[in-house]
Amino acid sequence: MQMHKVRCAGTNAEFLCSEDRPLLIAMERQAKDLIPVGCRGGGCGRCRIRIISGDFETKKMSKKFIGDSEQKENLTLACRTFPRSDVIFELRTPTQYDNKSTMRAGSSDSQRVINR
């Protein structure tokens, strides 16, 4: 199986990915932390990236995060994306993941306390 290099734009950080494995899963298996991991199923949008260069194929992804316009801009979900050449990407994490959930925000102090 052919291996491709997957690199985060503007950095030297990269990992290898075979054609039959989603980018996100290959990244995790190599213990790299370049793309945020969520459901790994194309449903939550957490792993959204834009492919700046390179060829890729995708499986079905939630339209909520990859609509037709996003698709045209080469946005994709790393957990549903398979490389067909070396690939360079940038993060495009959806904005809802910047906002802390109320549960988290409301308890940020307490969380610090409970961390062992």
Binding site: G38, C44, R46, S101, R104, S107, S110, V113, I114, R116
Partner: peptide, 26 residues
């Protein structure tokens, strides 16, 4: 449960919240 014990309330052994459990939903 008090929010000060939230980590233990959710994960009794780790006593720490996992980011995905809180943020990742469909």
């Amino acid at each position: 449960w008090d929010a000060s014990e939230l980590g233990k309330a959710i994960f009794y052994h780790d006593r720490v919240l996992n980011e995905n459990f809180l943020g990742v939903v469909t």
